[in-house]
């Protein structure tokens, strides 16, 4: 029997045959949903070896290491209740945790509240840049819903849609998207002035296709204005939610886009790195979830023209939905993404 886990993190014992059934079912579901090719037989056998490895921690063979980008490094220490300043947190990431990249961020981690404290954020970035070595991005979630009532000035599409007010809901989303786009451009200008290497728009499109539209337009304009700016865009889910549903960018409908199409849009807008997400189903096993995530991510990396980093953490990338992601699953998911998925990073 193999000790593995369910998508909620609880232990489950499965036979090798049961794991194989779940792996094949996960691959099949990915193919059906994302309309991508399945893993090869060789890939499937490699994945079985990784999942069924009796060791608690699994890693890549020498030479298959990949780089890591992060979302909001300072927030991780704030959650631990360790009261040190953000610049010191980034120094710890650099010299104690061996981070390949750094990311400054405000605790709210959303574009709208950061706008009101941009000078203070510029100071923190400028100060950190003097004492750190890796590329330093400034990260925010676009988080378009913060622009809607009751938190913002725009009508709330989530309240209008159940009433059948589709046109009004679409107009409200476009108004919020316009405000978001404006704020992302303000942020980009401020961080470029502070000296940051670039930006990370994390958890993008959580508010749906209008939010993704605003992000793409912001990236396009930032790229035109700052040709050397490093821009990473991390997504929020495996497909773009169609709250608006009719929005197009460069002639392609955004609603329902899966990772490989999201990567193409991000590349066309001018992003440098695409962060792809595949959601974990907490009712299915870890083997099912990992096989499914790997199938979608591998295809995204194969067809992308820019580097692709898979989100592998709490409830994404095959990892169980837990605030303490089990290391046996994180290490297996990371190994599979590197060796089978051929991702550029995580």
């Amino acid at each position: 029997m193999i000790l593995t886990r369910m998508g909620d993190g609880s232990f489950v014992e499965m036979t090798t045959a049961e794991i194989r059934v779940d792996v094949e079912a996960g691959i099949e579901d990915a193919v059906k949903k994302a309309k991508c090719p399945p893993l090869t037989d060789e890939d499937t056998e490699h994945l079985m070896d990784i999942i069924c490895d009796p060791r608690k921690f699994v890693s890549v063979e020498r030479g298959n290491e990949l780089v890591l980008t992060y979302d909001s490094q300072p927030m991780k220490f704030a959650r631990l209740g360790i009261p040190i300043d953000r610049v010191q947190i980034l120094q710890i990431y650099e010299r104690a945790l061996m981070a390949d990249t750094l990311e400054m961020a405000y605790v709210h981690y959303s574009a709208k509240p950061v706008k009101t404290i941009l000078p203070e954020e510029q100071y923190a970035v400028a100060e950190a840049l003097l004492t750190t070595t890796p590329a330093l991005l400034y990260g925010v979630m676009p988080n378009m819903p913060t622009y809607t009532k009751p938190d913002g000035p725009c009508e709330n599409a989530a309240e209008l849609l159940p009433k059948g007010m589709v046109t009004e809901a679409r107009e409200a989303q476009m108004e919020a998207a316009s405000m978001l786009e404006h704020d992302l451009l303000l942020l980009g200008a401020a961080m470029n002035e502070a000296g940051a290497d670039g930006l990370d728009f994390d958890t993008s499109a959580a508010g749906g296709d209008a939010e993704f539209y605003a992000c793409l337009r912001a990236v396009e304009q930032l790229r035109a204005k700052y040709p050397r700016m490093n821009i990473e865009v991390g997504m929020s889910s495996e497909f773009v939610l169609g709250f608006h549903s009719a929005l197009e960018y460069k002639g392609e409908r955004l609603a329902g886009m899966y990772p490989h199409k999201q990567c193409r849009m991000l590349a066309e807008a001018g992003a440098n790195v695409a962060g792809v997400v595949v959601n974990t189903n907490s009712s299915r096993s870890f083997p099912w979830n990992l096989a499914r995530a790997l199938t979608m991510c591998k295809y995204a990396a194969a067809v992308s023209t820019i580097p692709v980093h898979a989100n592998v953490g709490m409830g994404v990338g095959g990892v169980p939905m837990q605030i303490t992601p089990p290391i046996d699953c994180v290490s297996r998911a990371s190994t599979a993404m590197a060796e089978i998925g051929k991702l550029d990073g995580l």
């Binding site: 290491e65 061996m98 990249t101 290497d197 990473e232 023209t305």
Partner: peptide, 23 residues
């Protein structure tokens, strides 16, 4: 990749600045 302990920061820089794929 190990950040400044190895060369991870340098490889990451080339991905972020020049869109270079990992290899």
């Amino acid at each position: 990749m190990g950040g400044v302990r190895t060369s991870g920061d340098l490889v990451a820089r080339m991905q972020l600045a020049k869109n270079m794929r990992l290899d």
